[in-house]
Amino acid sequence: MIPGDYRVPKISKKFLIISGIGGFITTVLIIVVGIFVGSAWWTQPLFGFDEGPDQPIAFKHAPHVKQLGMKCTYCHRFGTEGAAAAAIPPVEFCMSCHRIVGDDKGEIAKIRDTYEGGKPIDWVRVHRLPDHAKFYHPPHIKKLSEKNNIEASEVCSTCHGDVASMTKVKQVSPMKMGWCVDCHKANGASTDCTTCHY
């Protein structure tokens, strides 16, 4: 060995171990994030999506639907009445029953307070389409109920899943353009751009 020759510095074992583990974690993270973003881009996030968001009032569908047997379109009636969105009914509507029904505790107390305060509830939106995509419920409900020979209130689960058994409502369909167009093609509906975009 010639003096002054370059000598590879000796790497400590400790450094090797730390950087090895660090590198591994980084790689895994990149893959995980990649899968999450990719899946969310194409369809729906693969994981971390089991539950819907927390709502200001923890409304439970189960008692209303399973115990009382109410139909979706009883409360979300706008969809069948000609409005674009089935939408959450206004507080006034909840109060048509809850003025009398229910104890004065917990979530029911909350909704009564809101009603008396005259303030709207800041519901967290679960199904959100971008502004440039316009979706209208009525023609879809009509078509599917006629096609499958079912009642209008039974059509909902086709896209929204079994909401009755969800504790927090979540989105089950991807609601991407491809998903829309596939269904439109399968049912012979228009695929002209202005059907949804204007």
Partner: peptide, 21 residues
């Protein structure tokens, strides 16, 4: 009068819900 619901505030354009008009 009975239909004067004023619902959640709209922060983004898509928050505008097309209710019954």
């Amino acid at each position: 009068e009975e239909e004067l619901y004023f619902q959640s505030p709209n922060k983004l354009p898509e928050d505008q819900v097309t209710g019954i008009d």
